[in-house]
Design a protein around this nucleic acid. Structure first.
Length: 250
DNA sequence: CGTGGGCCTGTCTA
DNA sequence: ATAGACAGGCCCA
């Protein structure tokens, strides 16, 4: 499948238009979403600066494993790891004479050894990926069933997997399970909140997260809850715009 | 039940 | 060039 964007127009080259629209969130009504999350001048600036930014709908399995791998890693390093895994455990596809590798199936990773995965550069994450893949296979786990559950319940289920804490769970909920109220708090979102929403938190909490490098479980919950209650049912979209704005612009 | 320390290793900077 | 810091957090004590 091949698709590209040229001058704001999307070209569907041998691609399933319906799939592409769904995958890139093109069906989402940005006007409605923007009205819903446009609570203050700062998020308003972010919306204007990156108008058109949307949430993708990844495959939940792929999303889960990718974010397990993403912990405590830089983005280039994450890409590298995922490429290694795809080459070693994915299926080869040829398009226009170029080789590509699909994201590995659960079956393939469950059959891997820890050393295989360490060889892909996963480090200590190898154990998490392996344990999670095996559990999904043993339980015959159904990601689709999660779509019917409410946000908090779904999050609890995901957090039972090895290597999945609140942040990873929130990312999977947002980017693959359609839970638009999920509000992942990573280091960048933490900076957003410190720099622009400090007055929304209690002074004690504010002071604590300012001086600490990492986020405790409790403080993650507090920032996450702030995002969801302040921005509402499309908090995840607010998160995306604010995150992007903080990374690129500020 | 909440909190702090340790962690594989690829990238980037000094 | 090569060492050292840091990275889209999680687990365990």
């Amino acid at each position: 499948m091949k698709v590209r964007q040229v001058e704001g127009e999307i070209e569907y080259v041998n691609a399933d238009e319906k799939f592409v629209n769904h995958y890139f969130g093109l069906e989402d009504d940005l006007q409605v979403i923007a009205e819903s999350i446009n609570k203050d001048a700062h998020v308003s600036r972010a919306l204007e600066a990156y108008w058109g930014l949307r949430l993708i709908r990844q495959d939940p399995w792929e999303c889960l494993i990718s974010y397990i791998c993403a912990t405590y890693k830089s983005i280039p390093a994450i890409k590298h790891m995922l490429n290694n895994m795809a080459q070693k455990f994915g299926e080869k596809q040829v398009l226009d004479g170029n080789n590509f590798y699909t994201f590995p199936e659960c079956k393939a990773l469950a059959a891997a050894t820890e050393q295989d995965l360490i060889g892909c550069g996963l480090g200590y994450r190898a154990k998490y990926v392996l344990t999670t893949a095996k559990k999904i296979r043993e339980d015959n786990f159904d990601f689709e069933a999660l779509r019917k559950l409410p946000y908090l319940e779904t999050k609890k289920v995901l957090m039972q997997f090895s290597g999945v804490g609140a942040k990873v769970a929130d990312c999977v909920l947002l980017f693959s399970l359609g839970k638009s109220e999920a509000f992942p708090v990573d280091v960048w979102v933490k900076r957003v909140i410190l720099n622009h929403y400090g007055e929304k938190l209690s002074p004690e909490v504010l002071q604590r997260i300012e001086k600490s490098e990492s986020l405790s479980t409790g403080d993650y919950e507090r920032l996450n809850r702030f995002g969801r209650s302040y921005f509402g049912k499309y908090a995840g979209y607010a998160q995306e715009y604010l995150y992007h704005y903080e990374r690129i612009t500020v």
